[in-house]
Design a protein around this nucleic acid. Structure first.
Lengths: 197, 197
DNA sequence: AATAAGCTAGCACGGATGTGCTAAAAAGGG
DNA sequence: CCCTTTTTAGCACATCCGTGCTAGCTTATT
């Protein structure tokens, strides 16, 4: 009977506003007021869709996870179909590159990822989702390595995953030093050393 | 004529209080009030030693940098003196291990490092010091690799530095998964692959 | 003992934050 | 057309923040 608004779509729009605020001014500035302003809504409207502030941030992190997962899954299929050799090498590089701030879109996503995962250390509301994201990434990396016949999969998984996390961190915090070219070169070098070593 | 208090020592004590608050509750909780409470001082006393809030955080980050630098420099000498072979390998591992959360002390330091460097992205007051820290670490890693006769020093420096950053990040955020043993194994594996590859 | 300076304590202000609550507005089904 | 229910808007309150000020305390020197 009333104005019908897909509540899930609305929540996603608000999450987008959260992302923009976080990118520009950091997670600690993602207050209800700032987010509502950024979304062009009144604070009361935002609160109608979210139980409280924690609920808002939690949903935003879930949204980020979903988006990332969707993007990665496409590449997983590509790696599977690219049977072997050079084709597979490129597919793996493309897959892992999705986790690095190589272009403006992925840069935004990495900035948001970094803000949320680090915040999760002291924000209980974010911990479980941050944990899920962390484990999901390890699972993907582990499967890629196992599929490539890399020995010592456990250590190598953590090594590659840590390298990706570190590259993303550096690329976000010192983008003029850790440029996309540098990140690509490092990733390629690492993958090459896994094949020969 | 008045009670004489070494002001620099006082500033360092307050910085310690900042560190404790940051470790426990995050950088965004390091307000003048919380820090003063933690230090057992009145807010007015803290403000007597620091021009403003930015000055406090800036000094704390400089203090962290100094402490880290002092610890690393000892190991640099050790690496230089350990001429070659197994002795050098262990010395290098010990040096780089200082940058990882391998024990409670270094864990504290890594937590604080992560909080400050990530905060520097959106806090202008911290940017220059965070930059200096970042570059200092690269310099150390670069020299270690060059001294070890590693080819492609530039790419390898960024690769190892990113790996260390990533390991520290994971060790801080998921300490039950990325344990000291895991970190040590990954670091050792990486260093080994540099020698043989 | 008097004094002058460093040091400590804390009040007051304007602004921001999360949340409880109320009331207006909007719009599709009767 | 009207009514019901979702959606929107916003006020009010307690709390916290950084900072400008102003006193009072403490103590080494004269």
């Amino acid at each position: 009977m009333p104005k019908v608004v897909d509540p899930e779509a609305r929540r996603r729009e608000v999450a987008e506003a959260v992302f923009r605020v976080v990118r520009r001014h950091g997670l600690e500035q993602a207050s209800l007021r700032n987010v509502a302003d950024e979304a062009g809504l009144a604070i009361g409207s935002v609160r109608h869709y979210f139980a409280d502030h924690d609920d808002l941030l939690r949903f935003a992190l879930e949204e980020l996870t979903d988006r990332l997962e969707r993007r990665i899954l496409v590449h997983v299929a590509a790696v599977r179909s690219a049977s072997t050799g050079e084709g597979r090498r490129q597919a793996v590089e493309d897959l892992l590159g999705e986790l690095l701030p190589l272009d403006p879109d992925r840069r935004d996503e990495s900035e948001i990822w970094l803000a949320f995962t680090t915040a999760a250390r002291t924000r209980p509301a974010l911990r479980s989702q941050a944990r899920r994201l962390h484990e999901g990434l390890r699972m993907i990396v582990g499967k890629v390595l196992a599929g490539g016949g890399v020995p010592d999969v456990e250590v190598e998984t953590e090594r590659l995953a840590a390298l990706l996390d570190g590259l993303a961190l550096d690329g976000v915090l010192q983008p003029d030093l850790t440029t996309p070219e540098v990140m690509r070169a490092v990733l390629r070098r690492h993958l090459a050393s896994l094949s020969t070593g």
